[in-house]
Amino acid sequence: MLKRGFDVVAAALGLLLLMPLLLGIALWIKLDSPGPVFFRQVRVGRHGKPFRIFKFRTMRPASEAAGKLTVGEDARITHSGRLLRRYKLDELPQLLDVLRGTMSLVGPRPEVPEYVAYYQADVKEVVLSVRPGLTDYAALEMLDENTILARYSDPHQAYVDVVLPQKLAWYQEYVARQSLKEDIRIILRTLYRLASSR
Rank of each mutant, 00 (worst) to 15 (best):
M1V: 08
L2F: 12
K3C: 05
K3G: 09
V8F: 15
V8Y: 13
V9E: 06
A11F: 01
A11V: 04
A12I: 03
G14P: 15
G14N: 07
L15T: 11
M19K: 12
L21M: 14
L22G: 13
L22W: 06
A26S: 14
W28H: 07
W28E: 01
I29S: 08
I29D: 01
K30Y: 06
D32E: 08
P34E: 01
P36D: 11
P36Y: 10
V37E: 06
V37Y: 02
F38N: 01
F38W: 01
F39H: 10
V42Q: 15
V42R: 13
R43P: 09
G45W: 00
R46Y: 02
P50V: 06
F51A: 04
I53H: 00
I53S: 04
F54W: 14
F54H: 14
F54M: 05
K55D: 00
K55Q: 02
K55R: 04
R57N: 07
T58D: 02
M59C: 13
M59Q: 05
S63R: 06
S63E: 07
S63K: 04
E64G: 07
E64A: 12
A65C: 06
A66E: 12
A66R: 10
K68I: 14
G72M: 01
D74R: 15
A75M: 09
R76N: 04
I77Q: 02
R82E: 03
L83Q: 05
L84P: 08
R86H: 05
Y87Q: 00
Y87S: 06
Y87E: 01
K88L: 02
L89M: 11
L89G: 10
D90I: 01
L92A: 13
L92F: 09
P93F: 03
L95D: 05
L96Y: 09
V98C: 13
V98W: 00
V98L: 02
R100D: 08
R100Q: 13
G101V: 03
G101S: 11
T102L: 07
T102Y: 07
L105C: 11
L105V: 11
P108R: 02
P108F: 00
R109P: 11
P110I: 08
P110E: 03
E111D: 13
E111G: 03
A117D: 12
Y119F: 11
Q120V: 01
A121D: 09
K124I: 07
E125L: 10
E125A: 15
L128D: 07
S129M: 10
P132A: 15
L134F: 03
Y137S: 13
L140E: 06
M142N: 13
L143F: 03
L143T: 14
D144S: 11
A150L: 01
A150F: 01
S153Y: 00
D154N: 15
P155C: 05
A158K: 11
A158R: 03
D161V: 11
L164C: 14
P165E: 09
P165N: 09
Q166F: 15
K167N: 05
L168Y: 00
Y171G: 05
Y171C: 03
Y171N: 08
Q172A: 12
Y174W: 13
V175H: 13
K181R: 14
E182K: 12
I184K: 06
R185I: 04
I186S: 09
R189C: 10
R189L: 10
T190S: 08
L191D: 04
L191T: 13
Y192A: 10
R193K: 10
L194E: 12
